[in-house]
């Protein structure tokens, strides 16, 4: 469990990070390290340079900004879990954050890291997708904003360019009604299937581990929008999807679970 040899640089600003990333061929940002370091130890990733952004100041915050909630990319899962502002305005985020891994993971992992990693099995990205979050990225040409529906592009792939730094995640206020159904076998495990449902007039549903990226339960949402009952909408949970198969569950079982969990989530929504 030793990674290959790599160089390490700690940066003091986003600009410094961007400038290094633009110059170096095989560099990776290091945030909480709880996705990247395991991959490196298994030698599934062998970057030549790690750019540690965790000492950049003012990148860990949760605040109201322009009618939205702005969350700094370095905000740890634990901070989401315990934020009073989020508990009031976007209560789904603390609820989801509280189920990520174990306390050690939650004290290290960052929201920016889990979003940038773009793993379809991760919990918080599915919540951000359900919330229609906006991702703020900084690159050599300045800042740009990416909508959640355009952010998760493929297996461990996002819309971020290799030289871009995700600096902030913005989520709308108002989704006070939520349900998070995480089905796993042990408390600290990843979800076999997870369902994040939020409602603010319309109902948005995000899926954990139903595909290679975080997904929206589009068919269910459409059914609900056209007035279907919760049960009927839930029956469409796996429509058009090919969930993964692994030792924790076959594709067929995941499809079934999605239906059960969506129904349970809908019945919990206010």
């Amino acid at each position: 469990m030793f990674p290959s040899k790599f160089e390490y640089r700690r940066v003091a600003s986003v600009d410094e990070a961007v400038s290094i990333l633009s110059q170096e061929e095989d560099a990776k940002i290091l945030a909480g390290g709880h996705s990247l370091i395991p991959l490196m130890k298994l030698r599934l990733a062998s970057p030549e340079l790690l750019v540690d952004i965790t000492k950049i100041e003012n990148m860990s915050y949760i605040r109201e900004d322009d009618g939205e909630i702005a969350i700094g990319a370095l905000t740890r899962h634990h901070a989401l879990e315990t934020s009073e502002l989020l508990a009031r305005e976007v209560p789904v985020l603390p609820a989801v954050a509280a189920t990520v891994g174990d306390p050690a993971v939650r004290h290290c992992g960052t929201l920016g890291g889990t979003a940038s990693h773009g793993d379809g099995a991760s919990d918080l990205p599915a919540a951000l997708l359900a919330l229609d979050a906006t991702f703020v990225a900084k690159g050599p040409k300045g800042e740009r904003r990416i909508a959640a529906k355009d952010f998760f592009t493929g297996f461990l792939e996002t819309a971020l360019a290799p030289f871009e730094v995700l600096t902030e995640i913005r989520v709308p206020k108002g989704y006070r009604s939520y349900s998070f159904q995480k089905f796993n076998r042990r408390a600290q495990d990843w979800a076999i299937v997870g369902v994040v449902a939020v409602r603010n007039g319309t109902t948005n549903i995000g899926y954990v581990n139903m595909g290679v990226t975080p997904l929206r339960a589009t068919a269910v949402e459409q059914q609900l929008a056209s007035g279907a009952s919760d049960d009927d909408a839930a029956a469409a949970a796996a429509a058009g999807l090919t969930p993964p198969s692994d030792i924790n569950g076959s594709s067929e079982y995941r499809a079934h679970l999605a239906g059960v969990l969506v129904r349970r989530a809908l019945s919990e929504l206010g």
Binding site: R185, R186, A187, Q188, D189, W190, I247
Partner: peptide, 10 residues
């Protein structure tokens, strides 16, 4: 992560 030794939580 794949060989599921239970903890006190289970």
């Amino acid at each position: 992560a794949d060989y599921l030794v239970p903890s006190a939580a289970e």
